[in-house]
Amino acid sequence: MNESLFINIIIGISIASTPLIFAAIGELLVERSGVLNLGVEGMMIVGALLGFIVQFHTGNPFLAVVAALLGGMAISSIFAFLTQFLLTNQVATGLALTLFGLGFSAFAGRGYTEETIVLIKAVDIPVLSDIPFIGPLLFSMNPLVYLAFLMVYLVWWFLFRTKQGLILRSIGDNHDAAHAIGHNVVRYRFMAILFGGAMAGVGGAFLSLVQVPIWGEDMTAGRGWIALGLVVFASWQPFRIILGAILFGGITVLQLHAQGFDIRISAQYLSMLPYLATIIILVSLRIRLKNKTNRTVPNCLGRIFHSTS
């Protein structure tokens, strides 16, 4: 394999992984607070649409990303309101959110299927990008790729290095106890859900602003569900999201390359690989952790909280 092909594959993987990193890191924070939001797909597709629309009208990538962020947040607030104030079942509400998001975006985006935009381009970081091999590999990425990695770090830092992060985790583990010592469970969860929506929105917008300069209904094509899987895969540990997203994005991209190299397996079976690999990795992770109790699963995940006092 020559060098430029290798670099190309790596860039391909980074493009395929980044939407997953955004969506999954947002959902990770949400789940750490004890909330399971299955509406990731719906929030992503709304972000993809709004990012596209704003980029189309303003040509300003910064505004486009902000719009995607706000769009994801806005639609996640429906989920937040229903689950936190009206105490609805989170699984069902999340599914409804996905349906609603897909329908809403398809409807609202009808006028934009004929359009195209200027993509957000990769940037060469001066000097560093000139280093042979390492330069194009690490220092010539899309700004949003760097942002995704930064967000993973920030979520880790927030969860494990700040007081609020500690409170959020304690809420996720035992909301009654956290409430008893005076923490506002609903407010923390509400904020976490909005953050999750914002990240999913940006993740979706990555598809329509970086990967392809088009808008099409259903263009997230199931990536929201993959992001949900990644959170479990990562055992709710932020940095493992990167690993999982790269593995998943990597297998997706590599199976396309394998076809190009004519590796003799039926394409259908090759296409199954990312899904099977996720399961296998998950199991092997569990086997390794077998004798330890898993302390990372938020105990209150998906449970409804209502303060009685």
């Binding site: 430029s4 092909l5 190309n8 594959i9 860039i11 391909g12 493009i15 395929a16 598809l207 990967q211 392809v212 088009i214 099409g216 259903d218 263009m219 997230t220 094509a221 990536r223 997706t252 991209v253 396309l256 390359h257 076809q259 190009g260 190299f261």
Partner: peptide
Amino acid sequence: WYDPGKEADAANALIAQ
């Protein structure tokens, strides 16, 4: 028949090859 993301991934893979 229609998955813009995957079609783009495939295009990139083919170009890389």
